[in-house]
């Protein structure tokens, strides 16, 4: 399985080991881990909602797009859902390649697309107990759009 949506935590070390097991040709593994920020103590926790079925498809498309565009020897996306506390891991993206440049770019691409294309929604609960849905950021959309501009050149 190259992509996974799950409530439980993941081990970065175990995931990297699984991606590179038995391989002598991989020279670089780039990993990105997203964590729950507490916004200076203003956040008590969050709940991540998703669209079962579409989420897995969207993540697989992002994964396949990265593997197709860069010279990768493996890639992995794990995204957690459900209740999460500050400091907890939310998302893991791994990109493995012979050389680091492809792995760096592919990992960055997968994160930019995940943030704007995969159907997840965060509901934050503040220290005061008030819950609110997080607004999408225009800067995330711009970051994803830049990758597509590159493809059209």
């Amino acid at each position: 399985m190259s992509v996974c949506v799950q409530t439980e935590d993941f081990s970065i070390e175990a995931e990297i080991a699984a991606l590179s097991a038995g391989r002598g040709d991989i020279g670089a593994v780039v990993s990105f881990t997203g964590l729950v920020r507490d916004n200076g103590g203003a956040l008590r926790g969050m709940e991540l909602e998703h669209y079962p079925g579409m989420t897995e498809k969207a993540l697989q498309e992002i994964h396949d797009h990265a593997v197709h565009r860069w010279s990768l020897d493996g890639a992995r996306i794990i995204h957690r859902v459900g209740p999460l506390a500050p400091g907890e891991r939310i998302v893991l993206v791994l990109a493995a390649s012979r050389h680091r440049q492809d792995a760096f770019e592919a990992a960055s691409f997968m994160m930019d697309f995940l943030k704007t294309r995969a159907p997840f929604w965060k509901k934050e609960t503040g220290a005061d107990g008030q819950a609110h849905w997080v607004d999408a950021r225009e800067s995330d959309e711009s970051a994803a759009a830049l990758w597509l501009d590159d493809e059209e050149e």
Binding site: G34, H79, I90, P119, F120, W121
Partner: peptide, 10 residues
């Protein structure tokens, strides 16, 4: 058919 707000994962 699904309706939802702009996504905010990651």
């Amino acid at each position: 058919i699904a309706f939802f707000p702009p996504v905010t994962g990651g």
